[in-house]
Design a protein around this nucleic acid. Structure first.
Lengths: 362, 362
DNA sequence: GGTGCTAGTGTAAGCGGTACCACCATTGGT
DNA sequence: ACCAATGGTGGTACCGCTTACACTAGCACC
């Protein structure tokens, strides 16, 4: 069951067995064959803990995400995993569920495992934790939180700019009363996102907005929509913090007999695959998850720190993707300025001719 | 930054530090305080590899799934994770992407890490691997593959029965030409599933069916639907291997102007949350993922093997869930027997009155 | 005043590998 | 014939931690 047993069986020393297993140095063919045979007979599987301990260096990189259930996170995870595998690394994932205690636990776990690198893709990040991480001397990449320091790289998305594009676009369609659907995440960045929405709206005097929040799930989006619409407030467009919650909101609207986009426009965020497959397809904001994943791997695993240094300040400018869930504000609303005068770079999605009358009868 | 350093700093022995860290035995208050202080000052994080190695026993359980991107797998994973955490275990996940080499790699990884238990939720499983696992003396639970043996428990879903219920239901609605959308999984069980479909159809003489397959993703479902419909074959109902591919198929149909369920009925499988949120909501078959997750944890982590023994033969009988994606076969089809005479247990989903005319104009 | 507990602590033997070093044959060069 | 490489192998000191065991006080009990 361990090296010694195999060595005994193959009548060699443990060192030689180790050489065979790791394919290092020169081992005579016949000896190697004996060892391989012994390994198979004894069904020997090297103890990875012992290996890591003795070897000192780890070949695994950790990924901590807020909610792997959301394809946004999972897509990034997958990229990291495939990049890592192709370089001979393993990947360990951990979910925080937006809970900071869980983040702490996961962080300590990763440090305890002495991972070779760590990607932290969460919205809840306390400064103390960053210190703790910094002292652990592990290469770290943060997405969307934290600040670059010694061994930590930082990738940011200009979320604010993305929201502005959405708001401007909705404004150009004549929408004046907006709703925002967020998700529960008590700490920093999410509030920062709500703030981004508030600020984007505040730039334009005639706009107003109300917010609601629930879990970062389909059901959460639905609940938030319900909450948003339950107070007599009647927005003509709902901006959702991401595509998943947007799909949740779509369902609530459908069940209320509110047609999208005729009666109500809805926007998502992230441009997750699902946003193309739901009905109606979501107007959303594209976040280049693939690129993000690659950058993370690059700065975590490339020997030269050059790239990492370059990436230390990377900020991504997201693009608007137009699909079928947005349209002109319903008539009876304040006169609309239909021109899209903002000069934003719009990416035309797989948009089809306006769709009519598709909500189920109540 | 190891035990010794801490011991030195706190002027105690390494054993005492270990006792403090693990909260075992009796350590005097003042001593403990000194140690804790030293730990914090030195930002000490115990090396988990060393711990596992020295301790001998592991507190982590492994989960290997075919495609964690599919909520079916992820839901089970989440249950396992939460159950495990509440018992003080860690969880390590691995994805195989339906690739058997990846399965082998993941399996060896888990064995190498000496996990305390292993849940294998995949469709690709070669017998040799089962042997290898069996010899590793690790408690294992298989979902849907393998056979119970020494330390392996087995959970099965009567997939065949589920498919029969779907076929019978569609038949009762007058459908005679069916399509089946699967996904690429070369090995055993999936073919077994296609076989289940074939058999279920073969029971009823007037039925015919054709199949298509692509990846287990939204896009894959769409491609498979495209493939299915591209040969001049005109089914009136499409049975999908799971909800995700069904949602993919829905999109393809929508884009072709084929109305669901008026022109075409579509069914999913699994009853994933998404199946309620897509449009139209999917008629599907409920697989109790929560129960499955709990059973897995129970048989992996309960000290008494009683439960495990009981679970060794567990077979789950899935239930049909009716929603909006199925309806009577379009007129012009062979006379339909509208009665649902099969006496199946049907679960009435959140079904709303028949919906009309909702596909976008082409 | 021994004897037997118990609480509190130190010592050191592993856990299963890795990797450095030493050693022994062969070689081949001079 | 001698020495230096070189291929192939064994010996063994760690890696950082847990844990059995030993030891020391202090205290209650005959």
């Amino acid at each position: 069951m361990n090296l010694k047993h195999v060595a005994l069986q193959a009548r060699v020393s443990t060192a030689t067995v180790s050489r065979v297993v790791n394919d290092t140095r020169f081992v005579e063919k016949s000896t190697r064959a004996r060892v391989v045979k012994a390994i198979e007979e004894l069904k020997y599987h090297p103890n990875l803990h012992a290996r890591s301990l003795a070897g000192g260096k780890s070949r695994t990189i950790g990924v901590i995400a807020s909610n792997l259930e959301n394809p946004f996170f999972f897509d990034i995870y997958k990229i990291i995993e495939s990049d890592a595998h192709s370089r001979g690394y393993e990947v360990m994932a951990a979910n925080t569920d937006y809970r900071s205690e869980q983040l702490i636990a996961s962080l300590r776990l990763m440090i305890g495992r002495r991972v070779a690198g760590l990607a932290v893709i969460v919205s809840e990040m306390a400064p103390e934790l960053m210190d703790e991480l910094n002292d652990a001397r592990i290469p770290v990449v943060f997405y969307d939180v934290g600040t670059p320091r010694g061994n930590v790289t930082n990738i940011r998305v200009n979320y604010r700019r993305g929201i502005e594009k959405v708001v401007d676009y909705l404004y150009s369609l004549g929408h004046r009363r907006l709703g925002f659907i967020g998700h529960h995440a008590i700490l920093g960045p999410i509030n920062e996102r709500i703030k981004a929405v508030m600020d984007a709206v505040a730039r334009i005097p005639s706009l107003e907005v109300r917010t609601a929040a629930d879990a970062d799930t389909l059901e959460g989006g639905r609940q938030a929509a319900r909450q948003l619409l339950s107070n007599g407030y009647e927005p003509t467009a709902i901006i959702c913090v991401n595509d998943v919650t947007a799909v949740g909101a779509l369902r609530e609207l459908r069940e209320r007999g509110i047609r999208v986009p005729q009666d109500m426009s809805v926007t998502g965020f992230d441009n997750v695959k699902l946003s193309e497959f739901c009905y109606p397809a979501l107007t959303t904001v594209h976040i280049p998850r693939e690129q993000i994943g690659h950058i993370i791997c690059e700065s975590l695993m490339s020997k030269s720190g050059k790239w990492a240094a370059a990436a230390a300040g990377i900020v991504i400018d997201p693009e608007l993707v137009l699909r079928d869930s947005t349209g002109p504000a319903p008539p009876g609303e304040p006169a609309a300025n239909q021109a899209n005068g903002k000069g934003d770079t719009l990416v035309e999605g797989t948009r089809r001719p306006a769709v009519r009358g598709c909500a189920p009868a109540r």
